[in-house]
Design a binder for these strands. Structure first.
Length: 401
DNA sequence: AGGTATTCACATGAAACTATTCTCTGAGTTAGG
DNA sequence: TAACTCAGAGAATAGTTTCATGTGAATACCTGT
């Protein structure tokens, strides 16, 4: 672009009325004033937590529901409402929200308790202290405060999957050590069968009350999309049928509203970039591709070298006809290691890495038995072919190949 | 033919190891009174 | 003598390796017809 072109481009850009007025309305962490189709849940949760306003310990509560069914949103909304009252009346009540999946914040026992203790103003180092020391600090902090504590643990299933249910047991047991204070727990889980493999003591005390968030259906997602798009976009710029299709797409994916909002946002961005005045169905289709492709590319960009090598090995081995098995991928991987000058990991480890890529949805790795010829994973790529070449380039660049 | 036993090629699990980051503690050192 | 420095012991954590055990069904091997 010459200087003049660029100047014109910028001037046009400024002249142009943007399609998107407020992007954050469509982003996942936005809390609307009015939460649609969750009235019932809000009432139940509010009813259960209400005693805490009288400084009585509310029952422990457990919330289930698939991703994008509004669990976190609802809980955060209720928390903020309660906090308003707490501030108004100056109650001795503490509400703590923690997402257990956040790396380096609350994804281990030590970090979880440390983070809780920090909420009470304790300085806890990231490492170096014994875990029970941290427990002691935490207990002391609460007991000194003498207040009622409600701890909300989001994505609690991830935490338990990683480090077991010992933490939860300790937390529920903590009440007996406390003299002046009490703790209530609110667990949020994406996994509907989460409590099945939980220690029965933990299970009974944690899920005194339970509530399930059903998936939204297509019509409900439409409502949500309309509500948000009114705020996010300028005027009436969404073409007929776009919202319906967007909702239908998300409803197919177990009613994930987050997905639908994401899709609509990207469709809007694409339309805006193309200087269009309306968001059309074709923008939505493009968005569908882009969302998926971006997700995959973003993931592989940040993977460590060994992971990238493994993926590249799968990519290269996949070209050969016939199904691809773990052993074949590992052979190619070892070759690649030699070329790059990296010490190859054991097959045990690579097997785990392959399983992780499967979890991320970048490949499909199904464990199959080939009878007399053993048991292994059958590996297929799960990305559209349009993304493949970009993947290839990113990997090769990342590895200097 | 029909039934059972083997066997393959990994999967899956558990424990142990390595390296890094960080705290805490106490011995040795230093500087000022 | 108080303040400071520094090495060593202990923890937490992430990423692995090592060792052990599990597993589903195609084949090999029997058995009685």
């Amino acid at each position: 672009m010459t200087y003049n072109h660029l100047k014109n481009f910028f001037e046009d850009f400024l002249k142009k009325e943007p399609l998107i007025v407020d992007k954050k309305v469509l982003q996942a962490n936005y809390t609307p004033d009015d939460i649609l189709h969750r009235k019932e849940q809000i009432e139940v949760i509010a009813g259960i937590l209400a005693p805490c306003l009288k400084l009585e310990k509310p029952s422990n509560l457990f919330l289930y529901g698939k991703t994008g069914t509004g669990k976190t949103l609802t809980v955060k909304y209720i928390i903020s409402q309660i906090l308003n009252i707490v501030k108004e009346k100056n109650l001795n009540l503490k509400l703590i929200y923690l997402n257990c999946k956040l790396k380096r914040v609350a994804d281990t026992e030590y970090r979880l308790i440390a983070q809780l203790a920090r909420e009470f103003g304790k300085e806890i180092p990231a490492t170096g202290l014994p875990t029970d020391e941290v427990y002691k600090l935490f207990v002391k902090a609460i007991d000194n405060d003498g207040c009622l504590v409600v701890i909300v643990l989001d994505e609690i299933d991830q935490l338990v999957k990683k480090i077991g249910d010992g933490v939860l047991y300790n937390l529920t047991r903590l009440n007996s050590e406390l003299v002046n204070s009490e703790i209530s727990l609110v667990g949020i889980s994406n996994d509907l069968r989460f409590t099945d493999n939980l220690d029965s003591r933990v299970k009974s005390s944690l899920s005194e009350e339970e509530l399930i968030f059903p998936p939204y259906n297509a019509l409900q997602i439409q409502d949500i999309l309309r509500q948000r798009s009114k705020l996010a976009f300028r005027g009436d710029i969404i073409e007929e049928g776009v919202i319906e299709k967007c909702a239908a797409y998300a409803a197919r994916e177990h009613g994930d509203a987050r997905r639908a909002l994401d899709l609509l946002r990207v469709a809007g961005e694409l339309a805006e970039r193309k200087n269009k005045t309306k968001i059309t169905i074709s923008d939505l289709d493009d968005a569908e591709d882009k969302v998926e492709s971006d997700r995959v590319l973003d993931i592989i960009k940040i993977q460590p070298k060994q992971f990238q090598l493994t993926l590249l090995a799968i990519l290269m081995a996949e070209h050969k006809n016939g199904p691809l098995f773990t052993g074949d991928a590992y052979d190619v991987y070892k070759e690649l290691c030699k070329r790059v000058g990296l010490k190859p990991l054991t097959q045990r480890r690579v097997s785990d890495i392959i399983a992780e890529f499967d979890m991320l949805g970048i490949i499909n790795a199904k464990v199959i038995s080939k009878g007399r010829y053993g048991r292994t994973r059958e590996i297929n790529l799960a990305v559209p072919s349009s993304t493949l070449s970009q993947m290839n380039t990113i990997l090769k660049e990342g590895l200097n190949l």
